[in-house]
């Protein structure tokens, strides 16, 4: 209490007190701040975080649809034309105005031409390397679609993924159908969902979401048995509801830009 000035709880500020000085009003300041700012909720709401996370989860599920279709052709050897025709008709109904028909025709013909080429492209590469490659492509796809602004790179990565996978298929028809379906699903599905959201068709939107999730889980059950699906489902639910808590905890206590925590440091460090 030698000087008349009040001790400030700031670093790197030259104050006329010795280094070991302890201000008596130290604890009182801290309590005051807590009361003042305590009623604010500096963190985001639980609900918004949950919704964002769910969106991310939904996107992963949509990506897995691709593998389901691949497994249909590769493992189960369903008739490709049937599936392709049904999905194409659905997409035609949905997106008759959004995608120009010229592009569609060009793409279809290009794919028709290149299907045999794609089929024999990496025949000498072993299957394992193809699966690895595909896994990496999927990772990059998910990262790029969440992190980047542009839609071009993720689309291209997806297409490379599909191309790489299609070299494992048997006939050119399968390749063509596979390509077609994947493009339709991954481009048209988001378009459809955006349409739903814009026009506030909530019920349809939820229906769509449940349909996709249900397909994926059903398929996992069919392929790998219930023993995998149930733990998977439970763990994904847990993660889905648990991660927002963790996120909020982090945001409350560790995020810089926090009003209380910011009180420790001066704005600019003054180095002598």
């Amino acid at each position: 209490m030698a000087a008349g000035k009040q001790w400030k709880r700031l670093l790197w500020l030259k104050q006329p007190f010795p280094d070991t000085y302890t201000d008596p009003s130290f604890y009182k300041q801290w309590e005051k701040l807590k009361i003042e700012h305590g009623h604010l909720r500096p963190h985001s709401s639980y609900r918004s975080v949950l919704l964002d996370l769910f969106q991310f989860y939904h996107m992963i599920i949509n990506t897995m649809l691709l593998y389901i279709i691949f497994a249909w052709f590769y493992h189960y050897k369903y008739n490709p034309i049937l599936i392709a025709a049904s999905i194409s008709s659905v997409s035609l109904i949905v997106a008759n105005k959004r995608v120009p028909w010229k592009s569609t025709i060009i793409i279809i013909f290009a794919m028709l031409t290149l299907s045999p080429v794609l089929k024999s492209l990496s025949k000498t590469t072993s299957s394992d390397s193809i699966w690895t490659l595909s896994a990496w492509f999927t990772t990059f796809y998910i990262i790029s679609i969440s992190a980047l602004e542009s839609k071009i790179l993720p689309t291209n990565i997806l297409l490379s993924n599909v191309t790489v996978l299609s070299s494992r298929l048997d006939t050119s028809t399968q390749v063509f159908c596979f390509l077609l379906i994947c493009i339709q699903i991954n481009i048209l599905l988001p378009t459809m969902e955006k349409y739903f959201i814009k026009n506030k068709l909530k019920f349809l939107h939820i229906l769509c979401v449940i349909a996709t999730h249900g397909t994926v889980y059903y398929f996992i059950t069919k392929l790998m048995g219930v023993g995998i699906t149930i733990p998977l489902g439970i763990s994904s639910l847990l993660l889905l509801f648990g991660i927002p808590h963790y996120y909020i905890h982090w945001e409350s206590y560790y995020y810089k830009g926090h009003p209380i925590l910011q009180q420790w440091d001066a704005e600019k460090p003054i180095l002598d």
Binding site: I107, V117, N156, L159
Partner: peptide, 13 residues
């Protein structure tokens, strides 16, 4: 869109 798709297909090939 068609340019992109075509380009990527050919690129992979």
């Amino acid at each position: 869109l068609d340019q992109l798709l075509m380009g990527t297909l050919i690129f992979t090939v």
